[in-house]
Simulated scan of single mutants.
Amino acid sequence: MVDAFYRAMERVGVSEVPIVIGWPTAGGEHNVTMTQNAAIFNQNLLKHLEARKGTPKKPQFAIEAYVRSLYDEKDKSIHRSYQSFVIFENNGNPKYTLFKKSGN
């Protein structure tokens, strides 16, 4: 998906554009913005980041990732899905397992 976006941007004359990706845990349409899908997406993203590889189109550029917010932002007047790019409930409990504990 990232490479498809790069190609589309190049077609309109933009070749260097940062891409920010994420998966909300709630608030979207078609039942895709759910905690289970966010967990799968973010766990796989972490695996890719740990490999320090880019995409097939730009393998020399490792992907960078940032945490937008740790907790839901239900008090903000923005679309529900934008309030939910988080990994913790407001009470501090994790919404899903993101980091696996090592055997040590």
Results as ranks from 00 to 15, higher is better:
Glu10Ala: 13
Glu10Trp: 13
Glu10Ser: 14
Arg11Asn: 09
Gly13Tyr: 13
Gly13Val: 13
Val14Ala: 03
Ser15Thr: 14
Ser15Glu: 05
Ser15Asp: 06
Glu16Asn: 12
Glu16Val: 01
Val17Ile: 06
Val17Trp: 03
Val17Asn: 03
Pro18Cys: 03
Ile19Trp: 10
Ile19Cys: 11
Ile19Thr: 04
Ile19Ser: 03
Ile19Met: 14
Ile19Gly: 08
Val20Asn: 06
Val20Lys: 06
Val20Met: 08
Val20Trp: 10
Ile21Asn: 05
Gly22Asp: 06
Trp23Thr: 03
Trp23Arg: 05
Thr25Ile: 06
Thr25Lys: 02
Ala26Gly: 02
Ala26Met: 04
Ala26Pro: 00
Ala26Lys: 07
Gly27Pro: 03
Gly27Phe: 00
Gly28Trp: 02
Glu29Pro: 02
Glu29Ile: 13
Glu29Leu: 11
His30Phe: 14
His30Met: 12
Asn31Pro: 01
Asn31Thr: 04
Val32His: 00
Val32Gln: 04
Val32Phe: 14
Val32Leu: 05
Thr33Asp: 07
Thr33Lys: 00
Met34Ala: 04
Met34Tyr: 00
Met34Pro: 02
Met34Arg: 02
Met34Phe: 01
Thr35Gln: 01
Gln36Glu: 15
Gln36Phe: 07
Gln36Lys: 14
Gln36Asn: 12
Asn37Cys: 09
Asn37Trp: 06
Ala38Ser: 10
Ala38Trp: 00
Ile40Glu: 04
Ile40Phe: 05
Phe41His: 01
Phe41Met: 00
Phe41Glu: 00
Gln43Cys: 06
Gln43Lys: 12
Asn44Ser: 09
Asn44Phe: 03
Asn44Asp: 10
Leu45Pro: 03
Leu46Ser: 00
Leu46Cys: 01
Leu46Met: 07
Leu46Val: 15
His48Leu: 06
Glu50Ala: 08
Ala51Asp: 06
Arg52Gly: 02
Arg52Lys: 13
Arg52Ala: 04
Lys53Phe: 05
Lys53Val: 15
Gly54Ser: 04
Thr55Ile: 08
Thr55Tyr: 07
Thr55Leu: 10
Thr55Ala: 10
Thr55Met: 06
Pro56Gln: 09
Lys57Arg: 11
Lys57Val: 02
Lys57Trp: 00
Lys58Leu: 08
Lys58Phe: 08
Pro59Cys: 05
Gln60Asp: 12
Gln60Arg: 11
Phe61Asp: 10
Phe61Glu: 14
Phe61Arg: 12
Ala62Ile: 06
Glu64His: 10
Val67Met: 12
Val67Leu: 12
Arg68Ser: 13
Arg68Gln: 15
Arg68Ala: 15
Arg68Thr: 15
Arg68Pro: 07
Ser69Glu: 11
Ser69Thr: 11
Leu70Ile: 03
Leu70Trp: 15
Leu70Met: 14
Leu70Phe: 12
Tyr71Arg: 07
Asp72Gln: 07
Asp72Arg: 07
Asp72Asn: 08
Glu73Phe: 10
Glu73Cys: 14
